[in-house]
Computed example of a mutant assay.
Amino acid sequence: MSYYRGMICENVSLKGDQGTPITAYVAKPSGAGPFPGVVLVHHLPGWSEFYIETTRRFAHHGYLAICANLYERAGQGNPDDVAAKVRAEGGISDAQMIGDTAAAVQWMRSQPNHNGKVGIFGSCSGGRHAFIYSCRNRDVDACVELWGGRVVMAKEELNDKTPVAPIDLTKDLSCPLLGLFGNDDRAPSPEQVNLHEAELKKQGKSYEFYRYDGAGHGFFYWHRPLYSPEQAMDGWGKVFAFLARHLAA
C-alpha cells in the first residue's frame, strides 16, 4: 500500500435527496490513480472534525474519499449545535440519508481517476446508515459498519423516519460487510450484535465481525474519553485490510 502525503481537499456541492443541494468534503490523493473510493457516512455528532479528518486519512491510504453533510438542511454553523438540533428532532429519515448518500456514491463513480470500486464507511448512526444503504442500493462494493446502533429495533421504536428495522433488510445486503464492536457497548449491546450476526449467517451473507474486550461505544474517537488506543489501532488495520481486498480494481 502506498501512502499519499500530497492530497487535494475541497468542498463540493451535490444534488442530495429530492434534488436538495448539500455540501460534501472531498480528499483526493495526489497522482493519476486510478484510486478506489470510500464514501463516509458521518455519525450523530454530525459533519464533525473527526469525520473530516477521517476523510483525509482515507486519502492518505490511497482512496478517493467523500463525506456529505447529511445535516445541512438543519442549518450551518458549529457542528455540535447543528447535531443537537437534529438529535432533538429525532434524527434524519432513513430515506433522506439514502438519497444524500446515493449522490455521494454517484459523485465518486463520475471521477476520471476512480477505479470503479466504492466502499461505504460509517460509525454509530453512520454505521447503521451504511448498513441500510448497502441493503437498499446495489452500487457499493464493500461496507464498513462500526458499532452501528439501532440495527436491531423493537417494533415500538419504529416511526416515520425509521420505518423498518435494519436487521430486517439483511436479506438484501448487496456487498461484503465488516463490523467492529466493543464488548462494553450498550448501543449496540453484545446481545444485539449476536442477533445481527445470526441474521447475516441465516441469510448466507459475506461478513466479518470483530469484537473487542475493554472497548465501549466509539472506541475510535481519539477526542473523547472512550478512546481505546490499542483496540482502535487493531480495528483500523482490519478496516484497511478489508477494503484492500474488496476494492482492488
Results as ranks from 00 to 15, higher is better:
G77E: 02
E191Y: 06
T162M: 13
L146I: 12
S134M: 09
K85E: 02
L158M: 12
I120Y: 07
A249I: 04
A95K: 10
M233A: 11
W147Y: 15
K205E: 06
F219G: 10
G99T: 05
P166W: 09
T55K: 11
A165K: 04
A24I: 07
M97G: 06
G91R: 06
G37P: 03
S30R: 08
V152R: 12
D81Y: 00
Y227Q: 06
A198F: 00
D80Q: 13
V151P: 02
R138T: 15
Q203W: 02
G116D: 12
K205G: 08
R150P: 01
S2L: 13
R245V: 11
D160Y: 06
L44G: 05
G179N: 12
N137H: 13
A198W: 00
R73Y: 10
P34R: 14
A104H: 03
G127I: 06
H129V: 08
E230V: 11
A95C: 00
N183Y: 02
D184E: 15
A102Y: 01
R87T: 07
W47S: 05
V239Q: 02
G218L: 07
D234W: 00
P176T: 09
R150M: 12
Q192Y: 08
I120P: 08
A249K: 12
F209C: 03
H217Q: 13
V118F: 02
F58W: 01
C175T: 06
H60N: 06
Q203P: 00
R5V: 10
S2T: 13
P163V: 03
F209M: 14
S206A: 12
L158R: 05
L226V: 14
D100F: 05
T54Y: 04
L200C: 10
I167N: 08
